[in-house]
């Protein structure tokens, strides 16, 4: 198991204004690896969905803290989005396409997009104990000679 080559950690309140900030920051950080522009777009979407979920679901109408951690390994990016909110009652159910607990103009596709765009998605959550969404994306592009 290799150690992370680089890492970053940031905390911010679960405000809609911070969703774009989070996804842009992660994409810029991820660009240290040899991801294609399309792959960086996919990382942006996945991060946007994970952070949006903390805004929509984690703390009800209250504001709470989100912790976003990124690690860069030689072959992959790992992103974790954690909150200390209400948690998820049934994680398997939450992963089903079109499942949403907030039907008002929600498509229930956030986790579907993360699953599609990242290589590994794992969710650790219990009711009342918060949620951690862990995502991994491997570098597929060949490295330039000499790197």
């Amino acid at each position: 198991m290799s150690a992370a080559r680089n890492y970053m950690r940031m905390e911010f309140p679960n405000l809609p204004e911070n969703v774009a900030f989070a996804r842009t920051t992660v994409a810029v950080f991820a660009s240290q690896l040899d991801f294609t522009l399309d792959e960086l777009d996919e990382i942006k979407v996945a991060t946007s969905e994970a952070v949006s979920n903390t805004v929509i679901h984690a703390y009800g109408k209250d504001t709470g803290q989100v912790v976003l951690c990124c690690q860069i390994f030689p072959d992959r990016l790992e992103v974790e989005v954690a909150d200390e909110g209400v948690g998820i009652e049934d994680v398997d159910k939450a992963l089903e396409p079109a499942y949403t607990t907030v039907p008002e103009e929600r498509m229930g596709l956030g986790l579907v997009f993360i699953n599609e765009y990242m290589d590994i998605l794992s969710i650790h959550s219990q009711p009342g104990q918060g949620t951690k969404v862990h995502m991994v994306k491997y570098v597929k592009a060949p490295k330039p000679d000499g790197v």
Binding site: E49, S52, G110, F113
Partner: peptide, 9 residues
């Protein structure tokens, strides 16, 4: 850029 929130709208 668009995500599931944009699609929902």
């Amino acid at each position: 850029f668009i995500d599931s929130s944009g699609l929902g709208a």
